[in-house]
Amino acid sequence: MSRLFVKRLSILRPLLIATLVLSGLASSSQANDLALASNTVQSKMVKIYGAGGLKGLEAYQSGFLISGDGHILTVWSYVLDTDYITIVLDDGRKFEGKIVGADPRLEMAVLKIDSQELDHFSLSKSVVLQPGARILTISNLFGVATGNEPCSVLHGIVAATTTLNARRGAFKSPYQGPVYVLDAISNNPGAAGGALTDSHGNLAGLLGKELRNAQNGTWLNYALPIAQLTTAVEDIIAGRTRPRSFDETVKRPENPHTLKSLGIRMVPDVLTKTPPFVDSITRKSVAEQKGFQPDDLILYLNNRRIDSLNTLINEIALIDKIDHITVVIQRDNNLINITLPGQ
């Protein structure tokens, strides 16, 4: 027994020495880096105020600039579910934020403010982190900072790189892809949309929403690697995810698909932006065959973002009946891809 213990220790020993060396190095050479990085990233951070304010739902979150023209990367959340999004820059200037686009599959949104020559993170220069890498997280957690006050900075390391679905059913999030798991208590209320950087302030990830393990009640501190988001962000900025029906010059087919012909009946259109929920499915219709169910929320049609029932109806009218349709629906917390064939 004791011999086994000693043997185990001897395996551990080099590891421990390595850890000591690392931590020693960190304290000497990175002391100034952290302070420097903590301050230089501030001008790229924004505070976002929007919907919420009810019990347990903070009406604020974090974000950061990704272009000099005022594009902002943040998380897709109820905070953005309003016509009045206020963006506060590091220097205290206030702007109205417009949603350029969002990708609920990645729980990410791109906003824009009307300004120029802003300091920003460049997504193309983002870094990839390995477990053990020292990190900073910068966010307006708990809404501590207002106006021109700097965002909060927490330090830590990347504890692991893994995928959110690695523990099936533990993290009920639409996004199930790769994440950095952090040992800093980074994902507090209001921190979502904040930046994860390396110890030099280079962008590495987007702080995710608060996520609680459904099985043991613990909270996860994590960030989405920027590489997971880059293509989607570029598509959004380039307008490739914009519904085509917003464009008046687009050519309309003579025989388009209709919801009725597909066998989908939606909820009544009662709001300016009625969420596109399925009300019922016609028996033996294409929709039923392909697995549509009542209460499904339609998010995407042919990779274009559907933000309301009205948009859904307009977009379907642009798809020729002979073409197939790809649909992304949200059912509870799951995102499901369905292809409806042309007729």
């Binding site: 105020y49 919907a51 903070e58």
Partner: peptide
């Protein structure tokens, strides 16, 4: 506007 609701609880 949610800014009026920004006050958080500290203990």
């Amino acid at each position: 506007m949610g800014m009026r609701n920004r006050q958080t609880t500290t203990y």
